[in-house]
């Protein structure tokens, strides 16, 4: 069904296109590289990364390129293994958030009326409530664990996706092919799946990159506040451990710079992908009317 259902959407000018090919490629490559590292972490890293192999906060050396952490374990191995948990939390909670937000948005936009009103008021409330404090409260009550972090981040990050999906579906709902399909007696599920969803799928993908960035960020924040279990190794807990053992004052930059750089790089990659996409319908920004240069006057008489 892919080719047949996607092409009309493009003909009708709905969807997204890549505006900046270089930025998009760079972003996708970085995300894919981290994904690959997460999968291969066990193969690359030594089997027992948590083991003490030297002094507390040992300096970077030929044996330990990124030095040692607050328990004398090898930072490089820890960052590699941490990639796995951080990517797992990021991706799993993104899937939950995007699925939930997608369903809420599509249902609200497609059915409209009372369903829409109820779902959107709910969305409004969640948009106003400060999300990180809410996550902290729930995580504190529920107890620290990776599974809880995934569910909490996933279940509390769906509102922006729902908003975006709803407005996109609204613009699709009244289109001729949707009304025709309805008139022909197609079931709601069928109309949504075959006619509405293909037209909002691109936006959903673009949106999931933004959700992924915020999920990575939230994972680090919850871990920093001690809401991921202490025994877990993730980018967030590595930074938290370094902080709890005063790595900054001790001058052990290697204990927190690498995991933080991974988070920054991952969020940057997601931002690059999201920013390089634009609506097919959007016009390019025209020329500025005022500018730095002056008018060039060409003299014909050689003056």
């Amino acid at each position: 069904m892919t080719a047949a259902t996607v092409s009309p959407a493009h003909r009708r000018g709905i969807g997204l296109r890549v505006r900046d090919q270089k930025a998009a490629t760079a972003g996708v490559v970085i995300i894919a590289a981290f994904g690959l590292l997460a999968v291969l972490a066990d193969v690359i890293a030594p089997s027992s990364v948590q083991q003490q192999v030297g002094p507390v906060f040992g300096r970077p050396s030929a044996d330990h390129l990124l030095g040692l952490d607050d328990s004398g374990a090898d930072m490089l191995g820890l960052v590699l293994v941490g990639t796995r948990v951080s990517m797992l939390v990021g991706l799993a909670s993104t899937v939950i958030a995007v699925a939930l937000g997608g369903v809420v948005g599509v249902v609200a936009g497609y059915f409209g009326g009372r369903v829409d009103a109820v779902l959107m008021r709910l969305t409004d409330v969640f948009l106003v409530v400060p999300i990180l404090p809410l996550m902290i409260v729930v995580a504190a009550l529920w107890g620290p664990s990776v599974g809880h972090a995934i569910l909490i981040i996933g279940l509390l990050s769906w509102t922006p996706t729902a908003r975006v999906m709803r407005s996109q579906v609204l613009s699709t709902r009244e289109r001729a092919f949707v009304r025709r399909a309805k008139a022909l007696g197609a079931s709601h599920l069928r109309v949504i799946w075959h006619h509405v969803f293909p037209r909002v799928r691109g936006l959903l993908v673009a949106n999931s990159v933004i959700v992924l960035a915020s999920a990575i960020f939230f994972e680090a924040a919850l871990a920093f506040l001690g809401l991921e279990s202490v025994s877990t190794t993730s980018w967030g807990t590595l930074i938290a451990n370094a902080f709890n053992r005063a790595a900054s004052s001790a001058g052990a930059w290697w204990a927190f710079v690498p995991p933080g750089a991974c988070i920054a790089l991952m969020v940057l990659a997601c931002s690059l992908v999201a920013m390089s996409l634009e609506d097919v319908g959007s016009a390019r920004v025209p020329e500025s009317h005022i500018f730095a240069g002056r008018l060039e006057v060409i003299r014909s008489d050689g003056q």
């Binding site: 004052s249 920054a264 940057l268 931002s271």
Partner: peptide, 26 residues
């Protein structure tokens, strides 16, 4: 700007703490 947007706050705080250690209160 994009990099600043991507950096986690707790981490930037620690980096600045590291840079200013001994000069400013922790």
């Amino acid at each position: 700007a994009l990099t600043m947007f991507a950096i986690p706050g707790q981490w930037l705080g620690m980096v600045l703490l590291y840079a200013a250690r001994g000069h400013l209160p922790a």
